[in-house]
C-alpha cells in the first residue's frame, strides 16, 4: 500500500508546504492589479519551486535504473514522487495564476498535460492501494506474470493427457452396480457401455468447451464464469461413471487455474496499465516544460 501509516510525515510535509504556498499566494494575487502572472518574480518563484518538485518526481525513474546505488531506499523516493509530485500541481497553478492560458497555446497544453498526469498518478496510487489486496484474496494460485503463457501451455498438455488417459481406459466386462435403476429392476446398461458412453461425453466436452477455453486467447465460453463453469461440470459429471469423476475434477481444477490466470492478467493490466499514460506523458511534460522555460526566459 502506498498510503499508510508510514506516509504520515510526507502527508504532513505536503500539507504544510501547500499551506505555506497558499499563504504566500493569496496576498500576492490580491496585490496584483491585473491578476497574478507567471512572469512576476513571485510567479517565477512558484514556477521554480514547482519545477523542482516535478524534477524530483521525475528522478524516481532514474533511481529505478540504479537500484543498488545507496542514495536512499526506493520507498523513500516513491513517497517523494507521490507527494511532491502532487504538491507540484497547485504550486504550478499558483505560478500560472490559476489559469491555463489561451486555448491551444503552449501553457494551455502544458496545464492540461499536467492535469492528465496528476489524475493518472492519483488513479495509479488508488489502484496500487486496492488491487494488491484484491489479488491477494482472489488469486491464491497467482504466478509470475511473464510465465502465464508457459503455464497455460502446461495446463493444455495436462488436460489433453487426462482426456487421452480416459480414452485409453479399457473397461472390463461386467455388471454396473451403479446403473441399477432406483427401486430395483434390471439394468440394461453394462459397465462397459457406461464407460464407453462416458468416454464419449468427456471427449465431446473437452473438444467443445475445455480445449478452446485453455487457448492463450480464450473466447466467449460458459467456463469464463465460476458459477456457470461449475454448473457445466456438474452436468457432465452426471453423465459419467464414477471412475471418471476424479479425472473430471482434475479438468475442473485446470479450468479454474486457467480462469485465474486470465483474472490475474486483467488485474496486472489494471495495476500497471495506467503507467502507459503516466510515464510517457510525464516525459512529454518535462520536454515541453523545458521549451516553456527557454521561451519564457528568451522573450521575457
Amino acid at each position: 500500500m502506498l498510503i499508510d501509516r508510514q506516509s504520515r510525515p510526507w502527508i504532513v510535509i505536503t500539507v504544510v508546504l501547500f499551506a505555506v504556498a497558499t499563504a504566500l499566494y493569496v496576498p500576492y494575487a490580491r496585490s496584483q492589479l491585473h491578476g497574478p502572472t507567471g512572469s512576476s518574480w513571485q510567479g517565477i518563484t512558484f514556477g521554480i519551486v514547482g519545477t523542482a518538485f516535478m524534477t524530483f518526481a521525475m528522478l524516481l525513474s532514474f533511481k529505478k535504473r540504479v537500484r543498488t546505488m545507496r542514495i536512499g531506499r526506493a520507498y523513500w523516493w516513491t513517497q517523494g514522487h507521490v507527494w511532491l509530485g502532487l504538491l507540484a500541481y497547485p504550486v504550478i497553478l499558483y505560478h500560472a495564476g490559476l489559469r491555463f492560458g489561451p486555448a491551444f497555446g503552449m501553457t494551455w497544453w502544458l496545464m492540461w498535460l499536467f492535469t492528465v498526469i496528476i489524475v493518472s498518478g492519483v488513479v495509479g496510487v488508488i489502484l496500487q492501494n486496492i488491487v494488491p489486496t484484491k489479488m491477494l484474496r482472489e488469486l491464491p494460485l497467482e504466478t509470475i506474470y511473464e510465465q502465464a503463457e508457459h503455464i497455460i501451455s502446461g495446463l493444455q498438455a495436462e488436460a489433453s493427457e487426462i482426456v487421452a488417459r480416459v480414452a485409453a481406459d479399457q473397461p472390463e466386462e461386467g455388471f454396473d452396480r451403479d446403473a441399477i435403476p432406483a427401486g430395483g429392476g434390471t439394468s440394461t446398461l453394462t459397465h462397459a457401455t457406461a464407460v464407453s458412453k462416458g468416454q464419449q461425453v468427456l471427449q465431446d466436452f473437452y473438444r467443445s468447451e475445455i480445449q478452446p477455453f485453455l487457448q492463450p486467447r480464450m473466447g466467449q465460453s460458459r467456463l469464463v464464469s465460476l458459477t456457470t463453469a461449475a454448473a457445466a461440470f456438474d452436468s457432465v459429471r452426471t453423465s459419467l461413471p464414477r471412475e471418471f469423476h476424479e479425472h473430471l475434477n482434475d479438468l475442473q481444477s485446470i479450468v479454474d487455474e486457467r480462469r485465474q490466470i486470465a483474472h490475474q492478467k486483467k488485474m496486472h493490466h489494471l495495476l500497471h496499465g495506467w503507467l502507459l499514460f503516466h510515464v510517457p506523458l510525464s516525459f512529454a511534460l518535462m520536454i515541453l516544460s523545458v521549451i516553456h522555460i527557454v521561451v519564457a526566459l528568451r522573450y521575457l
Binding site: R67, T68, P132, T133, M135, T143, H272
Partner: peptide, 28 residues
Amino acid sequence: DLEKCTRCDECVRACAQAHDGITRLVRD
C-alpha cells in the same frame, strides 16, 4: 507483503543488478 507489493519485480532486478546480472531471487 502482498497487500503492498505491486508485482513490479524491482526486487528481482535489483538482485540481478547486484550479482552480475544473475538473480538469486525469484518472486514466487
